[in-house]
Design a protein around this nucleic acid. Structure first.
Lengths: 135, 135
DNA sequence: ATAAACCCTAGAGCATGGTCTAAGGTCAAA
DNA sequence: TTTGACCTTAGACCATGCTCTAGGGTTTAT
């Protein structure tokens, strides 16, 4: 059984983060020592590593919550359910990707229209472009 | 001179948003009517459209603040300064882009390793992959 | 025995970009 | 004149993901 600081070190997160995850239902309390210290089992360690893995691939804590429910009830779920979940996330990520690409393009258009020279920016094309009504 | 609701309609933002921008120093008060109503001039309209344009190309409100300062003092700035600012933002956007692409790839790897079939997810490769220690 | 290092709780604070509420005052039309 | 649509303020609230503080108890090493 690990104390919170030990698990925190193991998982490279802060103690506060672990308590935060607990408060938000991502990781269930487990046991407590006589003095009220949290004690983490193997299962808890596994769960934390699941959370961190999911965070790393871009799931929000909310989505991880849902994933954990899928995991807990996985014997009643099909692979199809799980894959659907991931695919839905992929399409969200695709939207964000498109949005960021759009932004990048706009910025590049701005930048390349500007001479970038020494002259005062009184009539800088960048500032002028930003002032234009878009709606 | 426009009242706040008129400018809000014109700019397609809420009245609250305009007051919020004012509170955060993005748009200076301008005049007030006898009853204390905000009155927006042509210059203010121009400024709002600048803010909205900048938001649309992906600048944060903080960055817009800096851009507005550049705009106000543009006679003392060079095109070089302005272009530098935009280019710095482009490199931030590039980082975000790379991060999102990484996430997308991870998700696709997860998804494509999963059979997606009817069988119970007891040994679903997705859940297993998420559980693996990454550090 | 005492100080350092750890643990606990509840709750505030941060950054981002607003939205909403309460409790009022004002203005225009019917 | 009274209703409804508009305006004012200060401050609370939302989501996201923590981080920090205050005020306390415990454990461990010297």
């Amino acid at each position: 059984m690990l104390k919170i600081g030990e698990l925190a070190a193991l998982a490279s997160v802060s103690r506060d983060t672990l308590r935060f995850y607990e408060k938000h239902g991502l990781i269930t309390p487990g046991e407590r020592s006589g003095a009220g210290y949290r004690l983490y089992s193997e299962t808890d360690v596994h769960r934390i590593s699941f959370i961190i893995g999911a965070k790393e691939v871009g799931f929000t804590l909310n989505e991880i919550h849902q994933l954990l429910e899928l995991e807990v009830t996985k014997d009643e779920k099909s692979c199809y359910d799980i894959k659907q979940f991931v695919d839905a996330k992929i399409s969200i990520v695709n939207q964000r990707l498109a949005e960021i690409k759009r932004i990048k393009k706009s910025l590049q258009t701005l930048s390349s229209a500007c001479c970038g020279g020494d002259e005062p920016a009184t009539h800088c094309t960048i500032l002028e472009a930003l002032s234009e009504q878009t709606n």
